[in-house]
Amino acid sequence: MSTAVATPPPPAGAPLTKKVLTADHPTWCPGCGDFAVLASFYRVLEKLQYPHEKIVTFAGIGCSSRFPYFVNTHGGHFIHGRALPFAAGISLGGDDLHVFVFGGDGDGFSIGGNHLTHTARKNVRITYVIMDNSVYGLTKKQTSPTSPIGFKSKTDPWGALDQPINPMRTLLNSGATFVARSHATQVNHMTEMMLRAARHDGFSVVEILSECVEFFEGAFDAAIPRKGGHWVLIDEKKNDGSPEDAARHDVSDELAAFQLAGQAWPGKFGVFYENKTRRTKNALEAELIAKTREKTKGATDLALLQATFAKLR
C-alpha cells in the first residue's frame, strides 16, 4: 500500500509539483466533482510554493472530507463537523503553518454549523473549502442543509420540505473575512478563488458547487453553459476611474455582498466579500502575549511560576 521508502525523497528545496503533492489515489466515484477540486488545489500549491512541511490539509467526515489522504502534506481526518475548531488549534498552535480545511455541505453547514460561525467570527487564519453537492454523499443520499426544496432523497422521498440555507449569506453573516463562490467545472476560476483565499490574512472560505454524480446528478447544471446554464462572474471593481466601474461590485462592501447573495439561482460566482482590516485572532493573541510579556519584563517561565507561588505563602 505505502511506498514511503521506495520513492526517492525530493531534494531539499525542490519545487512543489503535482507529482510531489500526490498521495493516495482518490476513492471518489468516477465523474465526481471533487476530482476537479483536488486538481485545482494541486495547482494552487504549485503556485504558492510554501515550504512543504508547513502545509496542513485537514478535514472532517464525508466523501469530500477524504481529501487529506490524497494530498501529500501534513494532514488529518478528524470527526464529522469538527474540523474547523481542530484547525483553529493548528493555526494558533503553529503560526507559521498554512492550514487548509476541506469538507462537505453537511459537515460544514449542518453538524459543524456552529463551529463555522465561531471560527469565522474569531477570524482565525485558515482557508476553508466547502465542496457543496447539496446532498449527503458518503451516507448515500439523504437531504442536506443545501438541498433545494423538492429534492427527492432517501429521507424525503416525496421531495425535500425544509428551506435550504443560503451559504453566501450564512458566511457573510458569520463574519468570515473572505467569502467566494465557484464551480467544480471551472478549474481556472476555482484555482484563482482558492489562491486568493489562501493569500487572504484571516478566515477565508470558498464554496465550490461540486456535483455528486451518484446521488444528485445535474444539481448545478444551471451554471454550466454546455448544459444550457449560465456561468456569470461577479464583475469586480477595478478602481480605474472609468464610468462603468461605478456599477461594479466592491468586494469590501458587505451590503453589496448580501445583495449578490440574494440573487436567484444559480446566482453569480467570484469573490463576494473581502475584509482586509479586521485583525486575525492569531494577531490579537500574539499582541496579547507581547503586551503581557512587556509587563513581566520577559521573565523566565520558572521565575513567573515561582513568583505566583511566592504570593501563595
Binding site: 510531489v20 508547513k54 481526518h77
Partner: peptide, 18 residues
C-alpha cells in the same frame, strides 16, 4: 511528527480516526 516537521522521505503523514 508535529505539523511543521520535515520528513526526510518527503512523504507526509495523515493523523486519522479511521
Amino acid at each position: 511528527a508535529p505539523a511543521g516537521t520535515r520528513i526526510a522521505s518527503g512523504k507526509y503523514p495523515v493523523v486519522t480516526g479511521l
